[in-house]
Structure formats: structure tokens, C-alpha cells
Measured scan of single mutants.
Amino acid sequence: MLDDRARMEAAKKEKVEQILAEFQLQEEDLKKVMRRMQKEMDRGLRLETHEEASVKMLPTYVRSTPEGSEVGDFLSLDLGGTNFRVMLVKVGEGEEGQWSVKTKHQMYSIPEDAMTGTAEMLFDYISECISDFLDKHQMKHKKLPLGFTFSFPVRHEDIDKGILLNWTKGFKASGAEGNNVVGLLRDAIKRRGDFEMDVVAMVNDTVATMISCYYEDHQCEVGMIVGTGCNACYMEEMQNVELVEGDEGRMCVNTEWGAFGDSGELDEFLLEYDRLVDESSANPGQQLYEKLIGGKYMGELVRLVLLRLVDENLLFHGEASEQLRTRGAFETRFVSQVESDTGDRKQIYNILSTLGLRPSTTDCDIVRRACESVSTRAAHMCSAGLAGVINRMRESRSEDVMRITVGVDGSVYKLHPSFKERFHASVRRLTPSCEITFIESEEGSGRGAALVSAVACKKACMLGQ
């Protein structure tokens, strides 16, 4: 009897593995994704193909990295998701002549009506938060230079001027797309009239992360975010950046690689679950690469896999709870928690219980395998993109072996128990001629924006502006 049951459990697990095998990517698959990513990057950089390229390769006008001589107080704003952060950054000489960066910050959550109302409502709310922060720190009387981390696709015309191309991540505030974001912020500050600010720089969160990590390690020339969304930036040779005049030196390019796949480059790798996630998203047909990796989508992918296993009578005796059938019910943090389970399955059992399920031991094991399959594919897909960037940098610099540091931020990278190990191992397999160091950014977005502002202020002083 026991043997029969054991055989049935083994057969069930084997069927589960057959279904989950769809998520496995072979090294040849990853090399294919990497080569296609490089081709799209090239198209994004070139003037004649930029418009139709899915990977936009947006110039950021960040050319210099901090040298350690900029000092002063800077205000930093960070808008990239449902939370908005205001930070005071003091850049100065530390002990023994070292450079020191001290920060104080406060988080504000953005109400739904500000995210989806008008641009005026959104930026009025942001300036209200700045006003509140300055009151708390008794700094209303000071006109501070301000660095703005704005983590949406922007076409820069200068370091302090950028046109919002399109909202992502659930934002829909009308009247912002096609307009200068810094102008919208300046107008809102003017409307309030109770404080003055000098907006000197606007950067993407990947750029802010790279600059913040450069402060720790001067070989950091790539910034990457794996959180709600997924994106990367890197220092490109100016001669390859056709959208900006000049051939000397390097400029940081914001790849906006989340949109890779929007022209069909990933079609052969998309599964039924991916198509369902895409169809029910706020932007169907867009940001397809990001939807395979980002935390906004990972939990939902797992939920759809679990429903398939229920329908195949391989999980929960073929019956799903009402909660499990509800879109968004299986949160991405559950994926991390399930994979963090120590082996007694308590954590998995508790999560499934909150979803109205009474799982068996085998159910718990199957749910864990589903989570591992989805998150491992995410790590491997992400590795193909980064390997594409790094191999490109090595080739354009004609280096036999390139040493490089990548600064990384984002909740999936930082909080998932195995993502970074799987990701690092896969990147290294795909970049055999590179020695890569990964560092995690601390308060990256805010500190990085302030350091970019410090560079901009120093330049302005040198130019006598």
C-alpha cells in the first residue's frame, strides 16, 4: 500500500517536472537572447534605426563620474514606483581627507489618484512632500541643488532636461508624456511658492545606482535594477552614441532593455503563462523582457503555473481556492519566502493557508518547484541581457580580458534567497573573457542622484555659470 502511494507521488512529481521543464533555458538559448539583445542595442544607438529599435539606448548626458572633490548639501528625489523618497545628502571631506556622503531620508507613498490623475496632481503632491521634508529638517530658507531620480523612459536633451516617452509600472498621470519632466517639477514648486529649489540633474535609477557604486569602486561602469521592473545602464564610447554629437570619451546610456521583445525577438521563448500575464497587464505587448524578470510579474506567473497544475490534477487534489483564482493573489514576496523555507515546509504551508488552501507535504514541495522554475528562468533571462552589455563593452574597448564592476539594486536581487547566485553564475558562463565584480548599492537611487548633481554643480562652477 505504502509502495503504491510512494509510486503515485513519484509519478505525480515526474509529471510536474515535465510541465515545469518549459521554463528551462539551455545555454544556447541564452546565447541567442544575448546576441539578439546586442543587435537591438546597436539599432538603438544608431541614428537611422533608433526610432524602430525596441531597446532605445537613451543617452543620459552623464559623462563624468564623481571624483571626490564636490562638497555641499544636496536634496535628492526618487520616483520610480508607488513609494517616493526625499533625501538630504551631505557631501563633504571625511576623516583623513576621505570623501564622505551622509544621508537623511523619508519615504512617502503615492496615492492612487496622483498616479493615475493628471501630471499637475502628481507633481503638486511631490512638491508637497518636499515642503514637508524641508519643514522637518528646518531647511526651507536654503535654496538647495536638487537631483531627481526618475525611473521611467526619458529622452534627455541635457542633464536637466528630459522628455517622458511613456509611463510604465502602473503610472498613468495624463499630460506628462511628451513633456519635460524637470519643467513639470519646477512648475509645481513655483505653484507652491513656499520654498526654492535648483533642479540641476535628472537621472534614471540605473544611472543613480551606477554612480553610487562608483563611489565604492571606481571600476563600476554598469548599473542595473532588478526590482519591480528590470533595466540597466553602462558607459558607452561616445563615438557609438549617434544621437549625441561628439566622439570623445564616454557617456552613460540608459538601455531601457525592459522593452526588448516588443518587436518579436522573444516570441519563441514566451510561454502561455507569459501571454496571460501580458494580456492582463496595463501595457499589453510592451516591456516583454521586463515581464519575464521583474517583481511586478513574478508572483503572478507562479500563480498561473499553480492553476495549470491544479487543472492537471497534480496539486491540491485538483481544487483551487477562490483566493488562488484571484489575479495578483500570489505576491512576489511569497516566491522569495517559499524558496527561503528551511525544509520543514512550515513557511510554505503558512503562505498557502493564507490563500485558503490546506496543502499536503507533496503540495508544498511542488509549489516550491514552481517558484524555483519561474525565478530561475528570470535570473537566466536577466543574465543574457547583462552578458550582452558586458561583452559589447569588452569588444568596443578591444580588451582581451576586461575587469568590470556592476552596481545592482532592486528588491528581487536583494531579497530573493537564490536569485543573485543563479544570476551571477549564468552571467559568468556567458562572459568567459571578463572578470566581473557585483556590488549592491546602498540607498543607491538617492545618493547617486545627489552625486550626479554634485558633478553638475562642479561643472557649472568651472564653466562660470
Score class of each variant (00 low, 15 high):
329 A>Y: 07
315 L>P: 00
307 L>V: 08
351 I>R: 04
223 G>I: 00
378 A>V: 07
83 N>S: 10
400 D>F: 02
126 I>R: 01
345 R>K: 05
433 S>E: 10
405 T>R: 05
143 K>P: 00
271 L>S: 04
63 R>D: 00
432 P>L: 09
448 G>Y: 11
341 D>E: 03
322 E>F: 13
134 L>E: 03
8 M>W: 13
71 V>E: 03
389 V>H: 05
75 L>G: 01
113 D>Y: 14
386 L>G: 05
273 Y>E: 12
47 L>V: 06
385 G>W: 09
271 L>Q: 00
327 R>P: 14
11 A>G: 13
330 F>P: 00
172 K>S: 05
464 G>P: 14
66 P>Y: 14
220 C>L: 02
231 N>W: 04
65 T>A: 09
302 V>Y: 07
179 N>F: 13
449 A>G: 13
413 Y>V: 11
343 G>M: 01
344 D>M: 05
36 R>C: 05
192 R>V: 03
330 F>H: 06
376 T>R: 09
442 E>A: 07
303 R>H: 11
351 I>Y: 01
125 Y>D: 13
62 V>Y: 00
193 G>R: 08
162 G>R: 11
77 L>T: 05
260 F>P: 00
245 E>M: 03
146 L>C: 14
457 C>D: 12
341 D>I: 04
381 M>D: 00
113 D>K: 12
424 H>Y: 14
429 R>Y: 14
408 V>C: 07
105 H>A: 06
248 E>Y: 10
408 V>K: 00
79 L>N: 08
407 G>M: 07
38 Q>C: 10
296 K>F: 15
74 F>H: 03
356 G>W: 01
231 N>T: 06
88 L>M: 05
458 K>Y: 13
74 F>W: 03
375 S>I: 06
111 P>G: 08
432 P>C: 12
25 L>G: 08
339 E>Y: 00
73 D>L: 01
62 V>W: 00
135 D>Y: 10
122 L>G: 07
284 P>K: 15
278 D>Y: 14
261 G>D: 02
119 A>Q: 10
68 G>F: 06
238 M>E: 03
301 L>G: 05
320 A>N: 07
368 R>I: 02
43 R>W: 04
65 T>H: 06
71 V>Y: 00
141 H>A: 05
151 S>V: 11
313 N>T: 08
258 G>A: 15
247 D>R: 02
303 R>V: 01
88 L>T: 03
3 D>F: 03
103 T>K: 04
145 P>N: 01
125 Y>F: 07
140 K>M: 10
364 C>T: 09
200 V>G: 02
31 K>D: 08
455 V>Y: 05
290 E>R: 12
108 Y>C: 07
322 E>S: 13
212 S>A: 08
207 V>D: 01
441 S>Q: 06
207 V>L: 10
76 S>M: 02
169 K>G: 13
98 Q>A: 05
2 L>I: 09
421 E>V: 08
167 W>D: 14
180 N>Y: 03
263 S>I: 02
112 E>C: 08
5 R>A: 10
108 Y>M: 02
361 T>E: 09
358 R>N: 07
352 L>T: 02
41 M>K: 01
84 F>I: 10
152 F>L: 12
307 L>E: 09
33 V>Q: 09
423 F>A: 14
309 L>K: 01
119 A>F: 04
149 T>V: 14
329 A>E: 15
66 P>M: 13
431 T>D: 07
32 K>P: 07
116 T>I: 07
412 V>D: 08
374 V>P: 01
293 I>Q: 15
353 S>I: 02
349 Y>P: 03
130 I>G: 01
85 R>W: 06
290 E>A: 13
370 A>E: 00
109 S>Y: 07
189 I>M: 06
426 S>W: 07
54 S>E: 11
61 Y>D: 00
125 Y>V: 10
454 A>T: 13
136 K>H: 06
42 D>H: 10
237 E>S: 06
163 I>S: 12
414 K>Q: 06
68 G>H: 05
351 I>S: 05
153 P>T: 11
191 R>L: 13
23 F>G: 03
9 E>G: 11
291 K>F: 12
106 Q>F: 10
121 M>Q: 02
169 K>S: 13
120 E>W: 08
81 G>R: 15
418 S>D: 11
20 L>C: 15
58 L>G: 10
150 F>N: 15
11 A>W: 15
399 E>C: 12
340 S>A: 02
308 R>A: 04
239 Q>S: 13
161 K>R: 11
222 V>L: 03
340 S>Q: 03
345 R>L: 09
172 K>R: 05
15 K>M: 07
378 A>I: 09
161 K>I: 15
236 E>F: 00
232 A>C: 05
259 A>L: 10
343 G>S: 03
5 R>K: 15
25 L>Y: 15
2 L>F: 10
307 L>T: 08
366 I>W: 04
129 C>Y: 08
268 E>Q: 02
3 D>T: 13
357 L>W: 03
182 V>C: 14
39 K>R: 05
379 A>K: 02
191 R>V: 05
219 Q>I: 15
64 S>W: 15
193 G>E: 07
188 A>T: 02
78 D>F: 12
382 C>G: 10
207 V>A: 06
308 R>Y: 05
166 N>T: 12
221 E>K: 04
387 A>W: 01
90 K>Q: 02
101 V>Q: 04
57 M>G: 02
62 V>K: 00
401 V>M: 05
381 M>T: 03
326 T>W: 09
384 A>S: 07
101 V>G: 01
17 E>A: 15
307 L>Y: 05
324 L>R: 00
243 L>S: 15
353 S>C: 05
221 E>G: 02
215 Y>F: 03
125 Y>L: 08
151 S>R: 11
381 M>R: 00
189 I>K: 08
34 M>C: 07
234 Y>F: 08
206 T>S: 05
219 Q>R: 07
401 V>Q: 08
65 T>G: 06
195 F>I: 06
365 D>S: 05
236 E>L: 01
311 D>H: 02
311 D>R: 09
360 S>E: 06
16 V>A: 15
120 E>A: 05
254 N>W: 11
137 H>N: 14
250 R>W: 11
169 K>H: 11
179 N>L: 14
213 C>I: 13
388 G>A: 14
377 R>K: 01
200 V>I: 05
139 M>L: 10
194 D>Y: 15
435 E>P: 08
201 A>G: 06
216 E>G: 03
460 A>H: 02
357 L>A: 01
422 R>C: 13
319 E>F: 15
254 N>K: 03
382 C>N: 07
370 A>Y: 00
190 K>Y: 15
4 D>E: 05
125 Y>M: 13
77 L>A: 04
319 E>C: 15
229 G>F: 11
136 K>R: 08
110 I>E: 10
355 L>A: 01
431 T>N: 06
380 H>D: 14
329 A>S: 15
207 V>Y: 00
123 F>E: 04
360 S>D: 04
462 M>N: 08
284 P>R: 14
104 K>A: 06
